[in-house]
Design a protein around this nucleic acid. Structure first.
Lengths: 332, 332
DNA sequence: TTGTACGCGTTATCAA
DNA sequence: TTGATAACGCGTACAA
């Protein structure tokens, strides 16, 4: 690969002059500028970004850590981040943790060692690690899961209200035995959805039953197990609210396998509104999250703190809406 | 952020000595080693990978360019790449092009400027650009789409045979009017599937009809349009083979919307076997591709050429299999 | 174990 | 106004 020296030699100028042209700085005569540009093309020169970053102490790239690339929720967030990053001229380093906490730590450390300018975390897990990153003055934005509220930027939704909205809908449809398949207890988002579930029951003067609440690991397999376990409960629930769509899809499959009809025998409501939910053979009633926007917005926040325009932590809460399809039985 | 000098000062040694300890080189006395390690922890020092890369001329990171992160096919490939990369101690920079050729070019250029050690491309589009990268001695592996065969490493499947297998299955089920929704003509994989479709018809002495072949852009929306257009054809086809599952899912939805029953009125077969295909309410018959393995294998190839163990281009063709579910009507 | 040159751009200073 | 020189960023490699 050609270096700036090669270009300088070919154009018979100093490397500094080439640099000036590349960065549009200072006055360089049209004539030499053209010579330099010609040399650049001729050698197909690409500035070594590593060297540039070392000098400028900025990499023009940001990191995004997601927990499950197989769940369509995250690719959509990633697309939002990607497009926004491009708008700002930043490139994106995307890491997937598979919900593995030690891997999350490792990814973040590598990203920081790579001197990325800022970091967006979805589904962050450990407050203590975050404390440390704050101490080192890393630029951080959290998406989806909120930790250390008030001290870190956050983009998300009102999980409590959204979950309550979903359960309220089931109650309005006449359900009195509503189960909940919740996500990992460590997730603040999951926990708030759980609280929304409980609040809805409480306001409707319905009793809360422990064996109507199962925990699964926000994936298909997690939902599958949770649903199987739930079907041991007596009396049967008449409706199940799931903490995300992946688990709801699994719950549906468990039911179909056992001959339980949906929604006639059991209503199911999910959360996220991934694209699969709207397929005509699925038609999952669910809570829509503005995933793409969440990603895009998180980049805006990051830029604000990187450029120093803002020092106070900011919370952005985006609106959700209930998408009523067929699995809740509303249309029957 | 602390630098190696800070650590050296605190441990009362030279920066060079710290470097030796960090990289486990040469003999450093236990005593100083411990002093250094203590200083590293105390300052929470992370070596500046940018500086290291500049000096070592290797970044220990590879790039992966995918064309559509929303299609579950690619996240699975990415997971394979990711896990394999980690095994080799490499980190991964993932870029998504949204099937936009100019964006693909841009991404690749940024990755190369970032001095990544090697590059894996799925769905590469432009031979002429690749020619140029070859000229610059970039380490490249192609996945999924094969370009410049024999000159670049490639990991993929036998698209022709796999497509033929799918169509043969439909023929065996008695179908005589089989349509094909193909992908972008620019894609070698799509083209080979098209050839497989034609070969199957030919061998069965069935005539090829132009208006039984529609082109769509390998996504849900592309499949949707293609299927709508296909339903203009008279006589109706009795079966449709789709170049990927996303399009097959869309085709199913179009039919359901129009009251066409699947598989009774129309059989549908897809390609990829994304996880959605196996949901109980979908049960899409499709050709399974070993996506994760494709990703993992591509890293193996890349390592071989980076380390110079091999200089000849290599082709790895992985096995596929037909997964017979319900949309083809075989089980009726 | 250390001093020192080096990798490749950037930027401040200086000269023409 | 235009361009060159040199110091610098942070680790690494090699001779001492």
């Amino acid at each position: 690969m050609a270096t700036i020296k090669d270009v300088a030699r070919l154009a018979r100028v100093s490397p500094a002059c080439v640099s000036l042209v590349l960065n549009n700085k200072s006055y360089v005569s049209q004539k030499t500028k053209q010579r330099i540009c010609k040399a650049i093309k001729q050698l197909n020169y690409r500035p070594n970004i590593i060297a540039r970053s070392l000098r400028k102490k900025e990499t023009n790239s940001i990191g995004l850590v997601i927990s499950d690339i197989s769940n369509p929720f995250f690719p959509e967030v990633a697309r939002g981040v990607e497009d926004a990053a491009r708008k700002y001229g930043l490139s994106l380093v995307l890491c997937n943790t598979n919900a593995d906490q030690s891997l999350e730590r490792k990814h973040i450390d590598v990203l920081l060692a790579k001197q990325i300018d800022g970091l967006i975390l979805t589904s962050a897990r450990s407050e203590s690690h975050l404390e440390q990153y704050i101490k080192e003055n890393c630029y951080l934005v959290l998406v989806n899961r909120e930790l250390l509220p008030g001290r870190l930027d956050f983009v998300g939704i009102d999980n409590l209200a959204s979950a309550k909205m979903a359960v309220d809908h089931l109650i309005k449809l006449g359900h009195r035995r509503i189960a909940f398949i919740r996500g990992e207890p460590a997730s603040s988002a999951s926990f708030r959805r759980y609280e929304g579930y409980k609040l809805a029951l409480e306001q409707a003067k319905m009793s809360y039953t422990d064996n109507f609440v199962k925990t699964g690991y926000l994936r298909y397999a997690g939902g599958y197990q949770a649903m199987e376990s739930l079907l041991q409960a007596r009396p049967y629930p008449t409706a199940v609210f799931c903490a995300n769509d992946m688990m709801a899809l699994a719950a549906i499959d468990v039911c179909l396998l056992k001959g339980i009809r949906i929604p006639q025998d059991l209503a199911i409501v999910g959360f996220d509104d991934i694209w699969v939910a709207s397929l005509r053979n699925i038609q999952l009633t669910t809570v829509h999250q503005p995933r793409y926007l969440m990603g895009a917005k998180s980049v805006d926040l990051l830029i604000e703190i990187i450029t120093g325009k803002r020092t106070q932590a900011k919370r952005v809460i985006l609106p959700t809406k209930l998408v009523v399809r067929e699995t809740c039985g509303a249309s029957l």
